[in-house]
Design a protein around this nucleic acid. Structure first.
Length: 871
DNA sequence: CATCATGTCT
């Protein structure tokens, strides 16, 4: 068939190629002759139809151009092309070709368009601006943007319209650079632009997030005089808003000579979507005053703004405006209205809107579910999720994320698992939002195994997936897992850690005292300018404080431009841990002077600082300030600090009475604090009484049995030690093994008691023997009591030299350069003998040792410890 | 209509 067509057109070409055949008569005969040609080919019935129609359509019309235009006018592309196919160059007027091309463009028929192009080129037509314009239009409309662009390379097209159309299509196809390139060519070829040109190119700059390019364009527009145009102004406003240059957008808006509803809507929406809802709403009020008619888009933005800034009264007013303007049946109106009420906490109004909606969509359900979740009505949220399917509305990814978010916030593991099942059944697991929300739900519910499973099964991950899993491990006390995943993220190099990643992983460094890793991350923060992020800065300060680098922490704290409550709290807690109670109090006062209100957590940090420095009077004072001035109801944490404070300083009876008079039931940590005090002050009798309460409250916690055993051992009541040990054995409990670790050249070396697995073991033991000998020489006697009392020693009654913290400290001293501070971390409290030995070692080797135990920091220097006995 | 982050305490 294709060959026949070719034959046909070539034969007709031959026939019509004669330049003489210009008059009607000859053309008519040409048609006739062609009819003869065609009639020999019965298979080409359509072509003969075409010719029939030419002859029957209007016998008076004999010019091929006229015929073609008539086909074009009636939209009969098929016939037009067929006729063209059998026409010769000299029959056809370029203007006719324009019409045919226009028809191709209108019917988006690339195949026919190409044929026309071939006809034009094959016949050697001169392509002028008009013909070129139509050619480019045809290719543009038919989606062949490459060919369309090529036309612009060949032909100087004079009308802006055709440039604009291609620019617009290039932008629509995502080729913003191509669109801008075309604009540049337009500029250099001196074609006169129109306002549409500028709107179009500013959209491309906007999508490319090229602020610089957009600003240059802005300047060009001002010079061109088109800045006055409303549409140009609108697109500049849109450009600046999309690139978060709200102030520039506002400036353009203010300078516009005529503003229409679009200008107003976009500036309002721009403010709202850039987190400046109040500003947006005040523009809206101006808009009302200026008498511009508002439309649905205005109201939708205003509802969103009211939701953000919780301005429910304005929302209600606009609600009634919208009802009067007959928007109340509009889907978007109802959904944003519903969302506005729910975000403002007026769930009843939200429910009313929901009830009265004629057709509730997934969006309506999702907003309602999120509303329930926000108000803490987790049960209602999950119920509605399960109900909506019965109503025939199938939840989508938004709904699922809203429900999962709710389960995460309220730790509804069972409901979360049900939603997970639903996700599996409905194949929504591929969605990255859904998977991330699932992981977060499991992580917040403490099920890291499930979270990990979701993570590992994700085919595509994003940085949020990594942040969620790393943060989950970090929060659930799996610091090692958090760090190793962070390392994996760095190795893979597919995503760069962002502010949130860093804020997630630093607490893991903090809890491990991973000083070197933390410093490495600090470098990364500085290189990427993340320090200006408050979460990052705060967690960095906290990390340094918890790694024992208090001075460094304070220096960084000073560098935080706008300190928030958390910044102050980490610093106060940092001083507290290091036993600098007075400094902690000074910081607390500074904080209040800076106008920052303390919350319960900052009070915990402060009271903790007081108790660890023996500042009883101050502790009481702040406890009372908290209750009476700040109207904060004390929680167990606050009571624990007070008990700790009283017990530490020896006021055991007072502490006991205090516990008895607490308005809330004391938990194991409260009695545990008193038990600690009993140990410090060797009160075995009270200890026994307190221990029974602790064992009753937390029978599984071996730490308390160990503590009690220590108290017996220190009083040399070995019989009782044995009985207690038996009691642990009977319960089938295993005590938490003591371990210490030290980071050397980026590697973490972990020791347990009597550990000989470290390659340096021989050197460590030799070093410790030497130290011990020198200690005895200088009159220290080893605190043998501790040989039997510490956790690890209950099983291995062996030499004190085996304690994990000693081993770690020794390794630090023998394997690092002289000026380097030795930083050791221990999971339990430091043992008394080790504490003595650390003091001695710091003097003997002139090394500074920072030991962090489960309770606080000990900074050993020149034979003294910063804890001054408070440990 | 959506997913991820910092501070206390055993």
């Amino acid at each position: 068939m294709a060959m026949l067509v070719t034959n046909l057109s070539s034969s007709s070409f031959c026939f019509f190629s004669s330049p003489h055949l210009q008059n009607q008569k000859e053309i008519r005969s040409g048609v006739r002759v062609r009819k003869d040609v065609i009639s020999n080919r019965a298979s080409l019935r359509t072509v003969s139809d075409c010719v029939d129609s030419i002859t029957t359509f209007d016998r008076s019309v004999t010019d091929a151009n006229t015929q073609l235009r008539r086909f074009c006018e009636s939209g009969n592309l098929e016939n037009a092309v067929k006729l063209l196919r059998v026409s010769g160059k000299w029959d056809i007027d370029p203007r006719t070709l324009c019409s045919v091309l226009q028809l191709c463009a209108d019917s988006k028929s690339l195949k026919d368009g190409k044929e026309v192009d071939n006809f034009i080129r094959g016949n050697g037509f001169v392509i002028d601006s008009n013909l070129g314009s139509k050619l480019s239009l045809m290719y543009t409309n038919c989606g062949d943007l490459k060919e369309a662009s090529r036309v612009f390379d060949e032909v100087k097209i004079e009308k802006a319209l055709f440039w604009n159309i291609l620019m617009n299509e290039l932008a629509k196809s995502g080729d913003f650079s191509g669109s801008i390139g075309l604009f540049k060519k337009m500029m250099s070829s001196g074609v006169e632009m129109d306002s549409y040109t500028f709107s179009c190119v500013s959209k491309s700059f906007s999508s490319l997030r090229s602020v610089h390019g957009g600003e240059q364009l802005h300047g060009f527009i001002l010079k061109s005089g088109f800045g006055e145009r409303n549409s140009v102004g609108n697109s500049l406003v849109a450009f600046y808003l999309k690139n978060q240059r709200v102030d520039s957008a506002r400036k353009v808006f203010d300078e516009m000579t005529e503003r229409d509803v679009i200008s107003w809507n976009s500036i309002i929406n721009g403010y709202v979507s850039n987190g400046l809802a109040e500003k947006g709403l005040s523009v809206f009020v101006q808009m009302l005053v200026s008498g511009i008619e508002i439309d649905l888009a205005t109201i939708v933005s205003v509802f969103a703004g009211c939701a953000d800034s919780r301005l429910i009264s304005l929302g209600r007013a606009v609600h009634s405006i919208g009802v009067k303007a007959c928007f109340s049946r509009e889907d978007r109106f109802c959904n944003t209205l519903l969302d506005m009420y729910s975000k403002c906490g007026d769930l009843d109004s939200a429910k009313a809107v929901f009830r009265e909606m004629s057709d509730r969509s997934v969006v309506s359900y999702t907003s309602m579910i999120a509303g329930y979740a926000r108000e803490g009505l987790a049960g209602e949220a999950v119920k509605l999720f399960e109900e909506m399917e019965e109503e025939g509305i199938s939840p989508d990814v938004y709904t699922v994320t809203a429900v999962l978010n709710c389960c995460a916030r309220y730790r509804l593991l069972d409901e979360g698992k049900r939603v997970h099942e639903w996700i599996k059944e409905n194949d929504l697991g591929f969605d990255i939002f859904v998977s991330n929300a699932l992981m977060d739900m499991y992580a917040k519910c403490g099920s890291m195994r499930e979270a990990e499973l979701v993570f590992s099964e994700m085919r595509v991950k994003d940085i949020i997936s990594w942040n969620t899993i790393i943060g989950g491990y970090s929060k659930n006390c799996y610091a090692n897992e958090a760090l190793s995943l962070f390392n994996l993220l760095l190795e893979e190099k597919r995503f760069s850690p962002d502010e949130r990643t860093v804020a997630c992983v630093l607490p893991a460094c903090a809890s491990l005292s991973a000083f070197d890793k933390g410093r490495e991350i600090h470098g990364y923060i500085m290189r990427n300018g993340y320090f200006s992020d408050r979460h990052v800065a705060n967690s960095l300060v906290d990390m340094y404080a918890k790694c024992g680098a208090l001075l460094l922490a304070h220096m960084l704290f000073d560098d935080i431009a706008s300190k928030d409550l958390v910044s102050w709290t980490v610093m106060i807690a940092g001083y507290g841990m290091h036993g600098f109670g007075k400094e902690a109090i000074a910081l607390f006062n500074q904080m209040r002077q800076a106008g920052i209100e303390a919350d319960e957590i900052s009070f915990v940090s402060l009271l903790y600082a007081c108790s660890h420095s023996g500042l009883v009077d101050e502790g009481w004072r702040f406890f009372n300030i908290m209750r009476h001035e700040c109207k904060i109801e004390p929680t167990v944490e606050h009571y624990a600090c007070i008990v700790d404070m009283l017990a530490r300083t020896g006021d055991l009876i007072k502490a006991y009475r205090f516990i008895e008079n607490m308005p809330i039931p004391p938990d194991a940590t409260i009695w545990g604090a008193l038990l600690c005090g009993c140990r410090i002050h060797h009160d075995v009798k009270l200890a026994e009484k307190v221990a029974e309460k602790v064992f009753e409250l937390e029978p599984e916690n071996t730490g308390y049995y160990v503590l009690m055993a220590n108290i017996y051992a220190e009083a040399e009541k070995w019989e009782q030690v044995k009985r207690l040990r038996k009691r642990i054995g009977q319960r089938g409990l295993r005590k938490n093994p003591g371990c210490s670790w030290i980071e050397i050249k980026g590697r973490v070396n972990i020791f347990v008691a009597g550990d000989s697995s470290n390659p340096e073991t021989e050197n460590i033991e030799a070093f410790l023997r030497k130290v011990r000998a020198r200690m005895i020489e200088e009159g220290y006697s080893p605190l043998t009591k501790y040989a039997l009392i510490d956790a690890e020693e209950m099983e291995k009654e062996e030499a004190l030299c085996g304690h994990s913290e000693k081993l770690a400290m020794a390794l630090g001293i023998i394997s690092s350069g002289h000026g380097k501070i030795i930083r050791v971390t221990k999971n339990l409290r430091v043992c008394g003998d080790c504490h003595e030995m650390a003091k001695f070692m710091s003097k003997l080797t002139r090394r500074e040792i920072v030991l962090r135990d489960s309770n606080r920091f000990h900074q050993f220097k020149d034979g003294h410890c910063s804890c001054r006995g408070f440990w």
